[in-house]
Computed example of a mutant assay.
Amino acid sequence: MKAQGMCASQFDAVRQAFEDMFDDPQERGAGLCVQIDGEMVVDLWAGVADQEGTRPWTRDTLANTFCVVKPYVAVAVLMLVEQGKLELDAPVARYWPEFAQNGKAKVTLRQVMSHTAGLPALRAPDHNAMMYDWEHMVRVLAAEPLWWEAGTDLGYGTTTFGWILGELIRRVDGRDPCDFIHAQILQPHGLDVHLGVDEKHFHRIARFDSARGRVGDPYSQGLRAVLKNQPTHIATFAFTNPGMVPKRTSDPRWWAYRQPGVCGHGTAHGLAGFYSALLAGNFIGRELLNEFRREHSHGMDRVWMRPMRYGLGCMLEQQRDPTASHAMGPQTFGHIGLGGPISFADPERQVSFGFVTTTSGSHTMIDPRPSRLSSLVYAAL
């Protein structure tokens, strides 16, 4: 399938690989953007935005990005750290006293941001019916006991991350966290990323669905087996209570959902533009940027059930694990979303990368599609 957009001749192999993706009849629509030193060198899109195959994908089509937006709320929190309104090593309960319940009085902001807080999931009862009610969910979270002593183990805060950091923004700034992110990060740089899509943009949203026959790497297969067969496993609670699943993405309530750790919609150029702006010194100063992307935790993650490395709200390069590698430099950092979307930066080469898709794969880390594309970008540099 012929891709639309632009591609510098140096990256012709990237364009060819992007077009070759659509040889698979299950591949409906996707977008790819690569920027170097803030300059666009690849900006491609192809396919359709609906399941019927009648609405062409355009440059402005919005794709569901799931957890790709976690670094946005993390950077927003670091902006408030830089302003002196938050401290990384202060207890969360200093700003949110109710959070101290059930053994959480000493949990620090740094531990939450590095996924070592001991609060990666919510136990029963089922919270899916109330997931769109922010006030209800933060009350539940404030009352939730720790799964383990903070700082002693690693567990990805699938949904809890966004509620904790978002509530801290509300407590010290007064604004809804997504309003803060839009006003302070997205709008000033014209980034086409939405944490809660306005109804006037609903028509731009592409429909998301799973592909059949894609099994994923062994770690991913193991996680899916646990989610299917072990209802009381911590990973099952983290990913299903409430659940961030492809079937939810056809619901207008999801499109408008304002949970800054799990629900974003954007374009590939919007995602890449965030990292270009970040590398250029916007949002936070160099010292905090270095703190954001240095390793704060590593080890076997009890939620992902695989080895992970984290900064302060971003995932770090895993060169020893090809299924979790960005296929660029060792200092690369960014974040994945469920089923294939990804955005990241390589600070050594000043590369920013954004990929969006509506065809969900089965790799829980980096999908083979963007991995192939990023390796070709890196080879062309």
Rank of each mutant, 00 (worst) to 15 (best):
W45D: 11
W45R: 12
A46R: 08
A46C: 15
G47I: 05
V48S: 07
A49E: 03
A49V: 04
A49C: 06
A49S: 15
D50P: 09
E52R: 13
E52S: 14
G53A: 14
T54M: 10
T54K: 14
T54H: 12
R55P: 00
P56Q: 13
T58W: 02
R59L: 09
R59I: 01
D60T: 10
L62F: 04
T65K: 00
F66V: 03
C67N: 04
C67E: 03
V73Y: 05
V75C: 09
V75D: 07
V77W: 02
M79C: 00
L80Y: 07
V81F: 04
E82L: 08
E82M: 05
G84K: 10
L86Q: 10
L86H: 08
L88G: 09
D89K: 12
A90W: 12
P91W: 09
V92K: 10
V92D: 10
A93Q: 10
A93N: 06
R94F: 05
R94D: 15
P97C: 07
F99K: 12
F99T: 08
F99I: 07
F99W: 12
A100C: 08
A100M: 10
A100P: 07
Q101S: 14
Q101K: 15
K104F: 12
K106E: 15
K106W: 13
T108F: 04
L109E: 04
R110I: 05
R110V: 06
Q111Y: 12
Q111G: 11
V112S: 01
M113I: 09
S114C: 15
H115Y: 08
H115D: 07
L119D: 06
L119A: 03
P120I: 13
L122E: 05
R123C: 03
P125F: 10
D126S: 06
H127E: 11
H127I: 02
H127F: 05
M131Y: 00
M131Q: 12
Y132P: 12
E135C: 03
H136S: 12
M137S: 10
M137H: 07
R139Y: 07
V140L: 13
L141S: 03
A143L: 13
L146T: 13
L146R: 11
W148T: 02
E149M: 06
G151D: 05
T152Q: 14
T152V: 10
D153S: 14
L154F: 04
L154I: 09
L154Y: 03
G155W: 08
Y156E: 06
Y156A: 04
T158C: 10
T158A: 15
T158V: 14
T159D: 10
T159N: 14
T160Y: 01
G166N: 06
G166L: 03
E167Y: 01
L168N: 02
L168F: 01
R170Q: 11
R171P: 02
R171A: 13
V172E: 03
V172N: 01
